[in-house]
Amino acid sequence: MTMIFGVPLPALMGQLLVGLINGSFYALLSLGLAVIFGLLRVINFAHGAFYMLGAFAAWMLLAYAGIGYWGALVLAPLIVGVAGMAIERLMLRRLYGLDHLYGLLFTFGLALLLEGTFRHFFGTSGQPYAAPEALRGATNLGFMVLPNYRGWVVAASLVICLGTWAVIEKTSIGAYLRAATENATLVQAFGVNVPVLLTVTYGFGCALAGIAGVLAAPVFQVSPLMGSNLIIVVFAVVVIGGMGSILGAIVTGYMLGIVEGLCKVFYPEAANIVVFVIMAIVLLLRPAGLFGKDS
């Protein structure tokens, strides 16, 4: 059997694929964060809570309304997105003129509030949520058994990430968005309703977290803590990619998933710090992040 650094090749291939799957979640979540930061300049600490909200929305739709996975994949992000827009409109909006720290503190508090509320009603053990019938089972790829659902996660997240990137970089709506990021007053002078643009962008960023939550529901426990377990890594991803860089968030998300996967084979004990070690190195060498523009 071919060996690479003492690890059989099939095992390595398996780990690479697993890394790609985790990277999908990182990419989806950091994409939403990057979109929000890019336009609103808000460091959205509530992102993990919105991700959790997406998973819970899927579970509740099934438990109380009998709506299955595919319905939830459309409805749950909508619900989360609308919730996000309401929060932006009613509360977050008031903090735009102030220091970034206020937005950070507000979203952090919001995350604690949401998590606490769900913990109170649902406990921390989590709720079981099964994968849809069509995606159950696993396919033998020769070097590993790939659960079909995981394959779907990779495909779905790739499509969503690339779609989002295309909308922002290639369409006129995206152009307004990017322009508003550069100079909001000027864009407003051209007759674009910037406040609505901000609301919709925040809602969209939250909806992305919601989609990630629905995708995660059958893989992880649907638990109030699921967001806070993941969000720290996602923030590291955004910092490494460069705050506000859409492409940076996507590429870094997948890349770090793979690095983490490899680390689990060669030195498992370091798997949960490797992301932060990379973050420290990147910040030392390129403070604006790998894809960030120096301001």
Binding site: P8, A11, Q15, Q221, N229, G261, V265, A271
Partner: peptide, 30 residues
């Protein structure tokens, strides 16, 4: 694995490749 791990795939793959009869989970709750 570290506490509060969200993804066990890597560990599961390694356990599957080990040829063991039993995979024992020496961890708790979440």
């Amino acid at each position: 694995h570290p506490r509060e791990t969200t993804d066990f795939s890597s560990y599961i793959l390694q356990a599957q490749a080990s040829g063991a009869d039993v995979i024992a989970l020496a961890n708790s709750s979440g």
